[in-house]
Amino acid sequence: MPAAPHLKPVEDTVPMVHGEVAIGEDLEFQRRWWRFERIVWIAFALIVLLDLLGVFGKGYFAKGHIHQGPVEVKFERVERLGTPSIMTIHFAPEAIHRGTVQLWVSESVVGDLGNRRIIPQPESSTVGNSGVSYIFPASGGRSSVLFALQPASPGVFRFALRVPGVNEIRSRVVVMP
């Protein structure tokens, strides 16, 4: 024989309005919630505004630009996880020696920042010194090398670039989740 269900007498546990309709309204809580909602809407608006300005990447304030002698680097200071971006390195004619440009990049460019492709393809690449050295054939005039990046994990990552005869270029990139 099945067990009898547990029973409990019904009581008026839901607060009433004017002692006649059980509604369970909590107006004090609701007033606090409306105040909280107004703060949240302001916070949402600020976050969207900061996003539009590029504080979280892909905008004006996310653009990074470093000029060091004959080398100029343009990159995204703020990246987004799994989102492609381009780091461009411009070389003035003074950076070209014997028809080639030598560039050393730290391991973080290949690892943390997720380098997927280099345009143009380097003539040679050599690993060592906690990074990768590339040699690109170059004719006279200003030339550029592009690194297609796609970070695979969030965080703050430092990177460094080195060109013979030029002070090392160091900076950091924030990768948003």
């Binding site: 004017h18 309204e25 909590d26």
Partner: peptide, 17 residues
């Protein structure tokens, strides 16, 4: 009940008498 109010809100009287 406090958590329930936070996730679902509370019934609100719009018109009374």
């Amino acid at each position: 009940p406090r958590f329930a109010s936070m996730t679902d809100g509370t019934p609100l009287v719009l018109l009374e008498k």
